[in-house]
Design a protein around this nucleic acid. Structure first.
Lengths: 193, 193
DNA sequence: TTGAATCTGTTGGATAAACAACACTGGAGC
DNA sequence: GCTCCAGTGTTGTTTATCCAACAGATTCAA
C-alpha cells in the first residue's frame, strides 16, 4: 500500500471528512484567485465557513495544507489510473509520466501566477509521491537489489520532464512528448524490475 | 416582520446552518427522484452524510422537514420580490399571485409524480404563508377592521388559482392568466387596504 | 403464526467543532 | 522611536454531532 495522507477515508468521523473537504475546496478556489503567499489561514476558514481554531486541529499551518492538498490530488490522479495497485511495466511507466505531466499542467492552468515558493513546495510533495510509487513497484520484483538509486534517478527525471513540459510556451502533443522521453527513463528502471 | 422558520440565519451556529442545508439539499434531490412517501429519513441522512440522530435534533419527522423546506423556498421567492417588506398595492398583489403560480409550477416540474398527501401538505404550508403575508399587508392600513375574513378569502382564491394554473395541461402565458384573475382577487382586498 | 428485515424515534456517552479570549509577530505610517 | 492593524497559533469551555444501542411498528414471505 502507498503511504496515505493522514488516514483511510473509510474509518474517519464524518465531521472530520466534512471539515477537511470544506477546507480543501476553499483552498482550491482561493488558489485560482491569488498567489499562495497571499492566502491567509483566515481566508481559507472564512470561505470554508469553519472556525479558525478548527483549521489548526487539522493542519499545522498553510504549508501543511498545501502539502496535503497536492498529495491528495496527485494520489487521486494515480488511483484513477490504477497505478497504485500494479507493478513495473513499460506501459505503467508511460502512464505515470503522462499523469505527472498532466497534473503539473493542470496546476499551472488552475492556479493564479504560481510563485517560486509554491512551485518548490509542489515539487517536494510530488517527488515524494513518485518516489514512493516507484519504490513500491520495484520492491515487487524478485531482485534483492536496493531500489533507492534507480527510484531516485527516475523520480527526478520524470519530474523534470513534466516540469519542463508544463512550462513550455507552445506545448507539443503530450503523446509525442512522452514517446520521446519515455525510453530514457525506462532504461534506468528495466534492469531492476 | 413575517414569521421566520426556526431562527434568523445570522445568529445560528455554523454547524447548524451546515447541517440544515445538507439536509435540505439532500431532500430536494431525493424529491426529484422519488415520491415523498417513498423517501425515508434514512435516505435523507444517507445522502446528506449526517447521522440519523442529528436529523431528529432538527426536525420531528419527515413531514416537519417538508413543511420547513416548502416554507423556506416559498419565503425566498417572496423575499426575492421584496413582497415581505411592503404593503398592499394592486401591483404587489399582482406580483404575489405571479409568485405563487410560479412556485407551484416549479414544484410540479422538479418533483417526481407528486402524490396526494404531498400536495395537501404543500397546500397547507403555502396558504399559511400567504395568509400571514396578506395579514401583514392589511394590518398596515388605517382601518381598524378585522383582517381575517378578507385575508382568508384572498388566500384561498390565490392558492386555488395557482393550483389550477400549475395543473393545466396546456398552460397559457402566465401574464395573461394573472391579468384575468387579478381583478377578482383585488376587489376583495381593496376596501380593506 | 413465526421470523427476518427495514424503518422509526429515542437515549447516554464520546468526540469534533465553535467560540471568545489571549499573547505574540511583522509590517505601515507617523 | 511609537502605535495601529492584521494575521498567527494556542487554550478552556460550551455545544452540536456522532455512534451504538434500544424498543416498537410495519411488511413480507416462509
Amino acid at each position: 500500500m502507498l503511504p496515505n495522507p493522514k488516514q483511510m477515508d473509510e474509518t474517519l468521523d464524518p465531521r472530520v471528512k466534512r471539515t477537511r473537504s470544506l477546507i480543501l475546496e476553499s483552498f482550491g478556489s482561493l488558489l485560482a484567485e491569488k498567489n499562495f503567499e497571499n492566502i491567509s489561514v483566515q481566508d481559507v476558514t472564512d470561505k470554508a465557513q469553519i472556525n479558525r481554531a478548527t483549521f489548526y486541529a487539522h493542519f499545522q499551518d498553510k504549508y501543511a495544507l498545501l502539502d496535503y492538498s497536492i498529495s491528495k490530488m496527485f494520489m487521486q490522479e494515480i488511483e484513477k489510473r490504477t497505478l497504485n495497485v500494479c507493478h513495473y511495466t513499460p506501459d505503467n511507466l508511460r502512464n505515470l509520466i503522462l499523469a505527472v505531466c498532466e497534473f503539473l499542467s493542470s496546476i499551472h492552468s488552475s492556479c493564479a501566477q504560481p510563485h517560486q515558493q509554491f512551485e518548490s513546495l509542489v515539487e517536494t510533495q510530488i517527488k515524494k509521491q513518485i518516489f514512493g510509487l516507484l519504490t513500491y513497484w520495484l520492491k515487487q520484483s524478485k531482485s534483492k537489489n536496493s531500489t533507492d538509486i534507480p527510484a531516485t534517478v527516475a523520480t527526478w527525471a520524470i519530474y523534470g520532464l513534466a516540469s519542463h513540459y508544463s512550462h513550455m510556451k507552445k506545448r507539443p502533443a503530450l503523446d509525442k512528448f512522452v514517446n520521446e522521453a519515455f525510453p530514457l527513463v525506462a532504461v534506468n528502471l528495466e534492469q531492476f524490475a
